[in-house]
Design a protein around this nucleic acid. Structure first.
Lengths: 329, 329
DNA sequence: CTGAAAGCGCTTACAG
DNA sequence: CTGAAAGCGCTTACAG
């Protein structure tokens, strides 16, 4: 390992104190009221020696790491991967580095990740929380660490968040189906107390008040089995003419199941999904779906978090989504 | 922000030196030859005060951050998202934290990310390098920072890496197509000097020596336009009976284009893809593809990197992949 | 305009 | 078995 040049090396080389060098190189030249030619000499030397400031030392002194922790359900899920990409790009603009963890929808794993990240001294958190993790979120808040929830939030936790207008989006999408003439709808969501799920369900219920409809709630950990069973019931007993899937994971698994059963979409049965997927474009009629503003969710979360890191204000933001109902070009 | 308890607080509370506390709490009790009851008292106090060691201070002293930098082409690409998930899970086992960046296949962006990560004092790198980035890889090596390339590597750069046996996998897959009776194959890859791309192409060429075949190389930055043009040529002029796509991005874009053109797969034309995708299962005949051992690539990269961090040995590992050619259940 | 010095919270020889 | 102390590389009042 090549030995690193430090402030001291520069200071010695041109015979000034490390204080001066620090002022100049950290851009606080005016504050230190450093002489112009001295400043120039310092910059020159720093360049010559290829000086790389040591973040660690700076962090120890300032107590800021310029690192934020992003925790999602699963980074290998395309929805969260896109969120992660957006958060990284945006936070990079602010000179922040992002460390990422996957909770797998487990409150325990979330708590562990949070502890690890706190030990790492992250300056703030962006979290898409699993069900029943209010305690951990409250814990972060109680430590005074800035946090912004993303995609999901809790009604009874007073934190910053940025989410999609789930109820409205779902309502609009379902109304569209009704306009198309569908009269007997099924909703498949997760059995969850998370606000975004309740909102999507409520949006569905509100919009289907005047027609036939039924809500199916699936246990996240047994979704494989329960999804098939529920779809069978929907096809055979409820005889719904369209199914609404509440998330991209459910959508893809549901579409796969329906395809395997030889169900023709939309001829035998139509489908409406929440979230986007590459898969949708491969159907004869591209699947109707609600496209969440992923990039904006990510950007806003960073904006909210960084402003909270400065001013300690709580912000709650609801973004609107887009209904995509295209036909094959 | 609640004030943190430090080693000193514990030391003062029970009237010993910070040295003792450090030895006990960092598990070097024997090394400090600390008295048994003293050690117990220290542990007790640490628990009572809810002591959280300060990683930053430790890093400054030891020069190790227990952080690794992972740089892929694009974290929102499912292939790399899965790699990232694997790397995070595995490195977490070693007490390592991962920071991630996306190079967008740009050598300049890679260099920038590397500089940022080096300033962050990462202990090592796992990188899936873009074309023409040998210089940056060499730079990392010259600094003595451990590095393991993943998925891709350079013939003339002597670094650790873990990759799929691209040539063999491609050869096997193409041979399978030939066995099925296809006689006129097209290969669509990127115009790249990256070894994995050259190997896939070579595997294709070797396997098609005795039949009709043609290789098409696409410029990564103009793929949208060039892909369509090439496929048109393949359909109209070459009149190939099967197309081989060299990556998942090309596969999905290609399949989308073919589907839009009304081409029936595999009846009008068959297709073979490198890498997996959710999309493949939605075709009447699930798409034939080479499934790379993503999880093992990720795990191995961490294993190689951590052992290199200890012993400074270079390891090159080639993993085999699986040909997936299933019919609808 | 500039320097000497303390201190962030650890680790680790060194001396007893 | 235990303590005093130096030092990792910075920042930042303080004194001149």
């Amino acid at each position: 390992m090549v030995k690193k040049v430090s402030l001291k090396d520069i200071a010695q080389k041109i015979g000034v104190s490390t204080a001066l060098v620090s002022y100049v190189l950290s851009g606080n030249e005016e504050k230190g009221r450093v002489g112009k030619e001295t400043a120039e000499k310092i910059r020159q030397a720093a360049k010559e020696l290829n000086y790389q400031p040591n973040h660690i030392a700076k962090s120890l002194k300032t107590g800021k790491t310029n690192t934020i922790g992003l925790i999602v359900a699963d980074i290998s899920n395309p929805f969260f991967a896109s969120i992660a990409r957006g958060v990284e790009d945006e936070s990079g603009q602010f000179g922040l580095t992002t460390i990422i963890g996957s909770s797998d929808e487990s409150p325990e794993k979330l708590k562990n990740l949070v502890d690890v990240f706190i030990k790492r001294q992250v300056d703030g958190f962006i979290i898409s929380p699993p069900d029943h993790s209010e305690e951990t979120i409250d814990y972060i808040i109680s430590l005074g660490i800035p946090i912004c929830l993303i995609d999901r939030h809790f009604e009874h936790v007073n934190s910053s968040y940025v989410v999609t207008d789930n109820k409205e989006s779902m309502g609009k999408a379902v109304s569209y189906l009704i306009e198309l003439g569908y009269k007997n709808l099924a909703f498949i969501g997760y059995d969850s107390s998370l606000q975004h799920m309740k909102d999507r369900e409520q949006g569905f219920l509100d919009a289907t008040a005047s027609i036939g409809s039924k809500v199916y709630k699936i246990n996240f950990n047994k979704q494989q089995a329960e999804l098939g069973k529920n779809i069978q019931y929907i096809l055979k007993t409820q005889k719904a003419d369209a199914i609404v899937f509440a998330t991209n994971t459910l959508s893809i698994a549901g579409l796969k199941y329906l395809t395997q059963q030889g169900v023709q979409i939309p001829d035998d049965l139509n489908v409406m999904c929440f979230d986007s997927s590459e898969v949708y474009d491969f159907f004869y009629h591209p699947i109707i779906h609600v496209k969440q503003p992923i990039e904006n969710l990510a950007k806003e979360s960073v904006t909210i978090l960084t402003s909270q890191m400065k001013e300690n204000t709580i912000q709650k933001k609801v973004l609107s989504s887009e209904l995509v109902a295209k036909t094959r070009a």
